[in-house]
Nucleic acid binder design. Sequence first.
DNA 1: TTGCTATTTAGAAAATTTTCTAAATACATA
DNA 2: TATGTATTTAGAAAATTTTCTAAATAGCAA
Lengths: 94, 94
Amino acid sequence: MGFPETFKALSDPVRREILTMLKEGRKSAGEIGQKFDMTGATISYHLNILKKAELVFEEKEKNFIYYNLNLTVFEEIMMWITQFTGKKEDNSEE
Amino acid sequence: MGFPETFKALSDPVRREILTMLKEGRKSAGEIGQKFDMTGATISYHLNILKKAELVFEEKEKNFIYYNLNLTVFEEIMMWITQFTGKKEDNSEE
DNA sequence: TTGCTATTTAGAAAATTTTCTAAATACATA
DNA sequence: TATGTATTTAGAAAATTTTCTAAATAGCAA
């Protein structure tokens, strides 16, 4: 995957808002788009960046494409930041 | 401060590399610049972005300006990510 | 003061990112 | 098959970011 893509993906407010929406559970591209004053094409562009950064994955179902959070990469970002804050690196609880 | 600036600041590889360098301790703008194949003006631009994001602070001493990590904001990013990974939010050890 | 070193500021050029419109694809169902 | 809905792709325009050169500022030291 690569940190460059991940951090780039997180650097845009629209994309962070999309991630926040997905905390509630999967949403279709259309549902996500309704939250923003942008064309579907632009939302699609942002979703693609999140997908390439592996921050989300998609599930195709009927006519829809649903987007989900992929938590693995969030863990990796945590690790990266941990090198600065010096908290323990293995969160072995839970 | 604001997450937008912080994430923007972290989105550039040069700036992340600068932060990594500063783990060792404070460095002057000149010392930082030696690591990169860029003009001092460009380094200064990146340092300013890190400073505005409050990821670093500066100490002026004699003819030099030394840059240091400011760990506070890293903690805030950790918090932001924690909302996704669901780890405990108060790291009350140490 | 004058000159030297360290760094920033200003403004322009180059590169990248974000957004849009229009067209394309894909699937579902009448 | 034909039509409609959901979403993406292509290509261009607009906006932002990164970089450079040249000039400015600031402190030190002769």
